[in-house]
């Protein structure tokens, strides 16, 4: 099999996940897109490991070991990420990452429920300007 096939598929999947991370608004959909990107990397690792284990007679199988580690770390990441999303949803009532902009600097226009936390940095910015 040509190595170009899995490499191109991996690039396509990675860019699909990149689009999802940039374009989605719900935090769980962003996590799904992150999973797609991680899987694209896994496919690359497996393909290059299979190639190198024949072409270079590499017996360490580092690609497959790293793939297993990536899968495990992705499982841990999705658990922690969902716990964070659920905590945010419980505290704020929303999981939209567009609305979580308490640390944004001066957004007077797009935050109608701007509280004291959002007002203080803008005052500071006006004072320094």
């Amino acid at each position: 099999m040509h190595l170009a096939y899995p490499a191109v598929l991996s690039a396509l999947l990675f860019c699909t996940g990149l689009y999802g991370v940039l374009a989605r608004r719900n935090a769980i959909l962003v996590l799904m897109s992150v999973e797609l990107m991680l899987n694209a990397v896994n496919l690359n690792l497996v393909a290059f490991d299979v190639w190198l284990s024949r072409a270079a007679e590499e017996t360490l199988h580092s690609g497959q070991a790293l793939t297993l580690f990536t899968i495990t770390i992705a499982a841990a990441e999705i658990g922690i990420g969902l716990a964070i999303v659920l905590a945010v949803h419980r505290n704020r009532g929303t999981a939209d990452i567009d609305r979580l902009r308490d640390t944004a600097e001066s957004h007077d226009l797009d935050s109608p429920d701007s509280d004291a936390l959002a007002a203080t940095p803008s005052e500071k910015a006006e004072a320094t300007a």
Partner: peptide, 13 residues
């Protein structure tokens, strides 16, 4: 980049 780099690489299955 990927196609240009691995155009002739063959995985022996």
């Amino acid at each position: 980049v990927v196609v240009d780099a691995f155009r002739t690489t063959w995985i022996d299955l």
